[in-house]
Design a protein around this nucleic acid. Structure first.
Lengths: 236, 236
DNA sequence: ACCTGAACACCGTTCAAGT
DNA sequence: ACCTGAACACCGTTCAAGT
């Protein structure tokens, strides 16, 4: 006696009106919304709409919205170029690692926020971290310093990209310029008795675009790590 | 002829059942919810409930939720102790500034998130910034470096506190310890061909509590700023 | 196994109406 | 001027029911 397959396993001739749902298809749709409208627009309901279903259908492939955000973040990290370690000079590839991560995240609006609100651990995130550890260790940075430096590097790049994306979102370049000069005027206008330094440094406080500020930060962090690793500052 | 005052200006004998609404009262209620349940619980509706009104009533005193969050952040910054500048040694007060800001923010759950998502500019935030500029300039740090360093310091402290608050929220200390050892095991279990460094550094990657990691970061940043200011790294 | 509609328990904000 | 109720246009997630 032959038991017939249940109806959902029987092949159907009717060609499907919609492509089948899958984790990848969901992340695809989510990435499209992210790049077009930013992370806040990536809601379960919006993704479902994009895929011509109801939001409940997504939960068969993704356990919740946070997990979906982390899947998106990992996909983005897969786009990062990983600098080769250099035994004679770890500073340059270390800085390049930060620049590459920055550029990759910046291409996708405010995804950076995902890694601020959680600690993503997808395969591409791990590969990226492995690459940084290889760069630092090849240069002789001690293991504990290299390990904690990874956190420091990630935090710095991530928040820098995120702040940049906030600026980019709220109006274009001219709007940004305007905000900066308003801020400058505001600093100048502060009572000099209480805020002598803020008022005096109005120009330097508002100087530099995102890139100049980012480069300052990576110089400081890499120089500091070099000093720390060389034992100028005693580890505790 | 005497024009009578409009009814809402006429004194009333009926003692009010509820205290009158005000910006301060709203921020008070919001702070209570923040300290008890975290920033996500601070919603307009929840605050209104606490004050025995409807959410619409709040909008007479506060323009929106983001502004309210910034008012809260500024109030918290008012609790920060500001280290005195020292002309002979800026490193120590600079580090102490970071520790003090860290401690202050950490006392209030995940408020730190407010200053990640926006750039608060309330009076107490400005006073705190002024204090850091005074410390750095007294030590001879050049103006541009001091200005950009303020951003760097703020970013570092803020994200450190926020990550700490995420850890603290998701279960207590034993739960945290457990997560750490799971992470350690996970790093060890990674395929050594692809993840040699991550696997080898499992112990150092998961070593150190929040304080040790925080201290590492401030040492690196301050050492780096010193190197930068001394011209070891050429400014661009 | 996979998908669905409907519901639950929330949001921030607006707006006409009341005092 | 200040406060209110009701509504608008959303959320994430669950759950019983369908195929």
């Amino acid at each position: 006696m032959v038991i017939p397959a249940p109806p959902w396993q029987r092949p159907t001739r009717k060609r499907p009106v919609k492509p089948p749902l899958s984790r990848d298809a969901i992340v695809d749709a989510a990435m499209g919304i992210l790049d077009g409208e930013g992370l806040d627009a990536v809601t379960m309901r919006r993704i479902a709409e994009e895929l011509n279903t109801g939001p409940a259908s997504l939960y068969a492939h993704v356990s919740n919205k946070d997990e979906l955000h982390e899947l998106m973040y990992d996909r983005v990290c897969g786009e990062m170029e990983l600098p080769a370690p250099d035994g004679t000079n770890w500073r340059e590839p270390a800085k390049q690692w930060m620049r590459n991560l920055h550029a990759t995240l910046a291409r996708h609006r405010d995804v950076a926020r995902v890694s601020i609100a959680a600690i993503p651990m997808g395969p591409n995130v791990l590969r990226s971290g492995e690459s940084l550890l290889a760069i630092l260790r090849a240069g002789g940075v001690p293991d504990q310093a290299a390990s904690w430096a990874m956190d420091l590097f990630l935090n710095y790049v991530t928040t820098a990209v995120y702040e940049g994306s906030l600026m980019a979102d709220r109006g274009g370049w001219e709007h940004f310029q305007e905000r900066i000069s308003e801020l400058n005027a505001y600093f100048r206008s502060l009572p000099p008795a209480e805020f002598p330094n803020t008022a005096a440094l109005a120009d330097t406080l508002t100087a530099g675009d995102g890139d100049a500020r980012f480069e300052f930060g990576i110089e400081v962090i890499v120089a500091g790590l070099a000093a720390y690793a060389a034992g100028v500052v005693p580890p505790r």
